[in-house]
Amino acid sequence: MLFWLIAEIIKILIVFAGLLLSAAYLTLLERKIAARIQNRMGPMEAGFHGLLQPIADGIKLFFKEDIIPTEANKFLFILAPIIVVIPALSTFAVIPFGAPVKILGHIVPLQITDVNIGVLFILALTSLGVYGVVIGGWASNSKYSLLGGIRTAAQMVSYEIPLVLSIIGVIMIAGDLSLSKIVSEQSHIWFVVYQPVGFIIYLIASTAEMNRVPFDIGEAEGELVAGFHTEYSSMEFAFYFIGEYAQMVVNSAVIVTLFLGGWQGPLLPSFVWFIIKVFFVILIYLWLRWTYPRLRYDELMDFGWKFLLPLALANIIVTGFIMIILKG
């Protein structure tokens, strides 16, 4: 019992520290990749090739003056960035990040908790992310923030539907909602082979859920200053960024678990494979961001409702038919 408790706490600490650290260093990775795509050098001053840049940024944001607009609702203004971060961090609780290891005669699964509704747990927590943005936009009491908040809410509600429907194909093939079972079902072949359409829909819809560039109409710098976080400064502003990048790590981890075989792989230890795959998916997200221009508002809604949603529904029907034909 005591061993189990200690192992659990250590796992939680590792996941928490790992997520926060990777969220911080993703800012550097993003700037470096943006620089590479635009033929620049990126941050070079702090440390070797800018390796200390995230730490410098963190210290700077921490010591900045915290400005809260006088007309703002103070309680909700401070609460909103926290609501963004918490669901993003707690989603990782159900993701298996390595094969079970044996320590002191006990078998410890490298997953904080293996609930039998893992996939639904992830979907429920991602659906809460919208509150942080909406409440932040409303509580700032500024036109730009409110417009950004409303736009983002409409966008996130629309793209959540294809996101949920794209996973159903995977659940149908695996026959289980528990993530550790879904990973073990993929020991022979990754689900991305059976579900290429579902994979692509999930990739696009999750980019929209995170408000990243082809879909970032909520913070569109050109028209809304910075959208829902226009009025934010200091650590609250930093929290929005931690939330966004932690969400990116979590979404990559979900994609790896559902479509790319989780921690499974030859030769290297399992958690190394997991990290390599997550890194690969994050690179796809970054590449998407610096390749495509922002969509117009009506184009974005049309794309979600008239293209992604029917495609996701068709994917479910086709998957069902093929499964019945192969069975019978």
Partner: peptide
């Protein structure tokens, strides 16, 4: 567990988002 997650997914994640949106658009602070 299924009901527990559905409670959050449907009520907190979908219905209350609409309520919050309506409150924001009507501007009843």
């Amino acid at each position: 567990q299924f009901l527990a997650v559905m409670q959050i997914l449907v009520y907190a994640g979908a219905i209350m988002v609409l309520v919050v949106l309506v409150i924001m658009i009507l501007n009843i602070s």
